[in-house]
C-alpha cells in the first residue's frame, strides 16, 4: 500500500512536527533513524513528553530540535549542553536531552561536554557522529579518522580524532554507549536506558553522511555506509572505551561501555544545600 502517511498509525508521528516535514536532511542521512529511536524511547522509558526539553546546537543534527513536537531549543553552536544545564537546574523535573552533532558537541562545545560529564548533570546527550561538518560542506571534524578526505583535508586527515566513548567516560559520564544507525533496536534500548539513568549519559551514534563525507571516502551511496557498519561493527558490552578508536573504514566497537552509579549534580547540590539555613 503506497499512500500518504496516516498520522494515527505511525508510532512516532505524534512526536513529529508534521507541518515541518519533509526535513532538510539528505537522502540516506543517519540523523533520521537516530531521531526515530529517540522518539520511540520516550514511550519505552515512560517519560512524560511534556517534561522533556530537547536542546540542539548548530549543524545538521542541530536541526533535530525543529522537527520534534516537544519543548525544543535550537541554540548557538556548541552551547546546547550549557543551555540544557540551565534548564535542568532551574527546573529539575525536566528531562534534559541534548541532540547534536560531533562538531557541535566535541569541537566548539568540547569544554561543555567534559564539564557536564564531570558534574554528572542529569542529562542525556545523543551525539550523531558522522565524522565531518556536513552542514557547511564537509570539513574535517574532531572525529574524522586519520587519512579521511574532507574538504579541508583534501590530501587526507593528519589529525588524530577523539574517541568519544573514551572521552565521555574519562570525564565522568554515568552511562556511555555507542551504536551505529544500523543497530537500531540496540540504539533504541540504549537511549531508553540513558534517559532512565540518573546522571550524565552519552550515546555516540555512528551515522552516514553519504553525499558529503561518504562521497569523499569511497562510500558515496547511502547503502555503502550501512554495509560497512554491517560488516565491521564489533559488539562488546562492557568493553574498555579506550579500545573504541575508529580508523578509516576500520572496525567499529559498539555496545554499552559504561553503566555506573555516581551521585548526580542535583544529589550533591541538595546534600550541600540542606545544610543551608533558609532565610529570606
Amino acid at each position: 500500500m503506497t499512500d500518504t502517511l496516516n498520522a494515527k498509525n505511525h508510532s512516532i508521528e505524534k512526536y513529529l512536527r508534521q507541518d515541518r516535514m519533509p526535513h532538510i536532511w539528505c537522502s540516506g542521512c543517519g540523523i533520521g533513524p537516530a531521531v526515530s529511536c529517540f522518539l520511540r524511547a520516550i514511550d519505552r522509558a515512560e517519560i512524560d513528553p511534556n517534561k522533556i526539553a530537547l536542546v540542539s546546537g548548530i549543524g545538521c543534527t542541530g536541526r533535530v530540535a525543529g522537527y520534534v513536537k516537544l519543548d525544543s531549543f535550537h541554540t548557538t553552536h556548541g552551547r546546547a549542553i550549557p543551555f540544557a544545564t540551565g534548564l535542568k537546574l532551574a527546573k529539575p523535573e525536566l528531562k534534559a536531552v541534548v541532540f547534536s552533532g560531533d562538531g557541535d558537541l566535541v569541537a566548539i562545545g568540547g569544554n561543555h561536554l567534559i564539564h557536564a560529564a564531570r558534574r554528572n548533570i542529569d542529562m542525556t546527550v545523543i551525539c550523531v557522529n558522522n565524522f565531518n561538518y556536513g552542514m557547511t560542506g564537509g570539513q574535517v571534524g574532531p572525529t574524522s579518522p586519520l587519512e579521511a578526505r574532507t574538504t579541508t583535508t583534501p590530501y587526507g586527515n593528519f589529525e588524530p580524532p577523539f574517541n568519544l566513548p573514551y572521552l565521555a567516560s574519562a570525564s565522568g559520564a554515568s552511562y556511555v554507549a555507542r551504536w551505529t544507525v544500523l543497530h537500531l533496536r540496540e540504539l533504541e534500548r540504549a537511549i531508553t536506558e540513558a534517559m532512565i539513568k540518573p546522571g550524565f549519559s552519552f550515546i555516540d551514534v555512528i551515522a552516514p553522511c553519504p553525499p558529503i563525507y561518504g562521497r569523499m571516502n569511497k562510500m558515496p551511496l547511502p547503502m555503502d555506509s550501512m554495509h560497512y557498519y554491517q560488516e565491521k561493527t564489533i559488539i562488546r558490552h562492557g568493553a574498555d572505551p579506550k579500545e573504541a578508536d575508529i580508523t578509516l573504514n576500520g572496525p567499529i566497537l559498539a555496545g554499552t561501555f559504561v553503566d555506573i552509579e555516581r551521585p548526580t549534580f542535583q544529589d550533591q547540590l541538595n546534600h550541600i544545600s540542606s545544610k543551608v539555613n533558609a532565610q529570606v
Partner: peptide
C-alpha cells in the same frame, strides 16, 4: 547559555 536556559525554565 545557562542563564538563557534557566530563563526558559
Amino acid at each position: 547559555a545557562a542563564v538563557l536556559g534557566a530563563s526558559w525554565a
